[in-house]
Amino acid sequence: MPKIGMKAIRQAQLINATLTVIDRVGLANASLALIAKEAGVSTGIVSHYFGDKNGLLEACMMQILSDLYTALRQQRRKAGPGAEDQVRAIIDGNFDVSQIAAPVLKTWLVFWAESLYQPNLNRLQRINDRRLYSNLAAQYRRALPIRQAREAASSMAALLDGLWLRLTLAPQPMEQGLEQARMLCYKNLALWLNSAPTP
């Protein structure tokens, strides 16, 4: 009889092993056998919990997205109630420590690429994109006319994604470019808010 809570423990163990293996050898070479070896379990256990590598990658992305949403909630709770403070909190949440470890960064890249071909990953990507855009648009709408608010939200979402891509592919450690990335986002925010029509 399985121990109570063993499923959650095994799933977390396998997700962490998958992130580690993708970081080390890339998705194409991240076989179930390598992942099982990294986790210290049999290949059959991986198949039992996730079915195949695609199921495991989906579970990894769901965990990374869950960590991202937790970071965003925490940042927004700490921030002031104003639109500028809330957008800054969204920026800071996207650059949270849970998102900048090398295995997570590389898995994000894999996720973006694979979402073009796998319907389940594409669905997760669309949900994440819409959530980011709608949260940004709602905050900008408090300070800008609706059209400008939508443009500002699209601009910030594109900037966040672009900076993530550049930081992930850069040769220097992520931490070195992180503060500069935040500052660029803050400047973009200020430009949009300064463009607000005077009452």
Score class of each variant (00 low, 15 high):
27 L>P: 02
148 Q>E: 02
9 I>S: 13
61 M>A: 02
190 A>M: 11
131 R>K: 13
109 L>D: 13
5 G>E: 10
47 S>W: 01
95 F>A: 09
118 Q>M: 13
161 D>K: 08
157 A>T: 00
179 E>I: 10
184 L>K: 03
35 I>A: 03
194 N>M: 14
174 M>R: 12
12 A>Q: 14
43 T>M: 13
199 P>L: 08
58 E>I: 02
175 E>F: 10
140 Y>W: 11
191 L>Q: 10
82 G>W: 07
175 E>A: 15
108 W>K: 14
150 R>A: 01
4 I>H: 15
183 M>C: 09
137 A>K: 06
55 G>Y: 00
65 L>V: 07
41 V>Y: 01
195 S>M: 05
79 A>Y: 04
145 P>V: 06
78 K>I: 02
77 R>Q: 15
198 T>Y: 07
60 C>P: 00
24 R>C: 08
51 G>Y: 03
87 V>Y: 01
130 R>A: 15
57 L>F: 05
106 K>H: 13
14 L>P: 02
138 A>S: 14
54 N>T: 07
185 C>Q: 04
66 S>R: 05
60 C>K: 01
42 S>H: 11
191 L>M: 12
96 D>W: 07
125 Q>M: 15
187 K>R: 14
88 R>G: 07
100 I>Q: 14
190 A>H: 13
149 A>M: 02
1 M>Q: 08
66 S>E: 07
93 G>L: 11
12 A>W: 02
102 A>L: 11
159 L>K: 05
158 A>G: 03
178 L>D: 06
36 A>G: 09
25 V>L: 09
188 N>P: 00
71 A>H: 06
40 G>D: 10
70 T>Q: 12
88 R>D: 06
48 H>G: 02
40 G>A: 09
158 A>K: 00
133 Y>G: 03
55 G>P: 01
13 Q>N: 13
106 K>T: 06
29 N>C: 10
94 N>F: 11
56 L>H: 03
137 A>F: 04
169 L>K: 09
75 Q>K: 08
54 N>C: 07
55 G>A: 08
5 G>Y: 11
116 L>K: 13
72 L>G: 02
22 I>S: 06
47 S>P: 01
30 A>V: 10
36 A>I: 03
46 V>T: 00
47 S>F: 04
120 N>Y: 09
32 L>E: 13
101 A>V: 06
105 L>R: 15
61 M>C: 07
191 L>W: 07
158 A>S: 06
99 Q>A: 11
191 L>R: 09
24 R>N: 10
59 A>Y: 00
67 D>M: 05
196 A>D: 05
12 A>H: 11
76 R>H: 11
182 R>C: 10
17 A>P: 01
165 L>D: 08
74 Q>L: 11
88 R>F: 04
166 R>P: 05
114 E>T: 12
164 W>Q: 12
5 G>F: 09
105 L>T: 09
43 T>F: 06
39 A>V: 04
106 K>N: 12
13 Q>F: 00
49 Y>G: 00
35 I>R: 01
176 Q>K: 12
49 Y>P: 00
88 R>Q: 12
141 R>C: 07
128 N>D: 15
35 I>M: 04
195 S>E: 05
63 Q>H: 03
22 I>E: 03
126 R>A: 15
77 R>E: 15
89 A>F: 07
73 R>L: 11
186 Y>H: 12
85 D>Q: 13
140 Y>K: 05
31 S>Q: 10
160 L>P: 00
28 A>N: 14
7 K>C: 12
